[in-house]
Amino acid sequence: MNNNVKTLVNGIIKDNPIFILLLGLCPTLATTSSAINGLSMGLATMFVLIMSNIAISLLKNLIPDKVRIPAYIVIIAAFVTALEMAMNAYVPVLADALGVFLPLIAVNCILLGRAEAFAAKNKVIPSIFDGVGIGLGFAGALTILGIVRELLGTGKIFDFAIFPETFGALLFVLAPGAFIALGYLIVIFNKLQKK
């Protein structure tokens, strides 16, 4: 159990997919224009990650090594498609907000990376913890980036006005602001983590 907790914490801190591993940066930069968008993208990815980790660790012995990548991709894509259908049916508002980035979870390299690096080598329970840990690390990073960008760009956090919008720097809502904010966050995160 101790090991499982360690796996979980590692996913959030030491192996943080965004700030340390720098994986899956495309959806990270694209969807974090506001805190709520970042959070929902993070949670959706976390769900797919946990499910694919479970499925792959269960099936790992049935998948010959040479075809493992296509097999993993099919499994991940299946969960993403299922998630998209379910969201469209039951939470259409959220599905709309995530738009094209929802189906694109399938090609997020975090998912394939964890399948390859963890789920394919471990049992189901640790794989779940890894999925939760990495998922939380990803969702947390996206939310923080979303908060920073929304605050600096529009003066709001989760749509709650902190300072007048007039003082917002539009740059941070746009793509360059995403790179700048992410860069500084990586610096801060690594500085704090080294201590």
Partner: peptide, 18 residues
């Protein structure tokens, strides 16, 4: 259960079934 060997038959069946 041991991991399946990467023979043509195994690969074909595994991927098809998935």
């Amino acid at each position: 259960m041991a991991k399946l060997e990467s023979t043509f038959k195994n690969m074909f069946l595994s991927l098809s079934i998935i």
